[in-house]
Design a protein around this nucleic acid. Structure first.
Lengths: 147, 147
DNA sequence: GTAGGTGCAAAGGATTTGCTTAAAC
DNA sequence: GTTTAAGCAAATCCTTTGCACCTAC
């Protein structure tokens, strides 16, 4: 086993056990390279390893959310959208509404938001910021997926 | 009919027709005073006007989302959470995770976020910011709802 | 050897939709 | 009068769960 691949598995699943199915699922997540639904992921996974069940993908997604390897970056047509998170540092996501590309954005608002919250009498525990826009390629008219 | 109440109905439903059910739904939304699920809203509405169906509430919620009278401020246990939006100006929401209180927060990040996005090669079309925390009352240990 | 993962199928549950009747405008 | 909403019930569909078997550790 290539060490870097093993490291990725640890990033994805933490102390959970790693099966062939989960290996394929983490690999497929990374390969997709943009925001994906569980269904998208399942389709990709079965190309790598046929026979993996949808429930298994859902369970692996839950595990990967737990470790922060992936994050929910919105919804599309009632389905949750996920994306692989690059580093471990606190960040947000910039999602292309045309092709689904996802770019991580370091969070520089922490102090500012906490101040606003405090002024309103709240003690901030967490915040969610998601930016939606069109990426360079899509702005130039490159093949977008259907929204 | 009290003029101010009529004005509220217009804010809630725009050019849609206003029935007794919808009047009760808009009124209940405003009375709740914090974040609510469709189910919560349905319960409140039937106290004002018994016999209103759940589907009617869902359809009214869709209409009120369309006019911006209410907005989605997150989810709780898989159910969408909504809150009445005060003014018309662009703002975000500060949600108390303990009691569900919602405080509108004027958006002061527009320029900053657009710049971050542009730097990443994106043309920003929209953004969502939701802050979660504990309100003053809950911090002091006042009766919280179950999470 | 055992806790944890898999696959399948069935259940769960929020939300939507079809249809007929009733009410707004 | 016509168009739009209500109410009911059934359908939809994403997601979760139960269970028996298998596998990573």
């Amino acid at each position: 086993m290539i060490p870097s691949a093993e490291r990725d598995m640890h990033r994805a699943y933490g102390t959970h056990r790693v099966s062939n199915a989960r290996r394929a699922i983490a690999e497929a997540s990374a390969r997709i390279g943009c925001a994906f639904t569980v269904e998208d992921l399942h389709r990709s996974v079965t190309r790598i390893l046929p026979g993996v069940g949808l429930a298994t993908v859902y369970r692996a997604v839950a595990a990967m959310l737990g470790t922060g390897y992936i994050a929910c970056v919105g919804t599309r047509c009632g389905k949750a959208l996920y994306a692989v998170c690059e580093g471990g540092a606190h960040h947000h996501h910039l999602v292309c509404t045309s092709c689904g590309a996802v770019t991580p954005l370091p969070c520089s608002l922490e102090a500012q938001l906490a101040t606003s919250a405090r002024r309103a009498g709240y003690t901030l525990t967490s915040h969610e910021v998601t930016l939606y826009g069109t990426c360079n390629a899509c702005s130039r008219g490159a093949s977008p997926l259907e929204r």
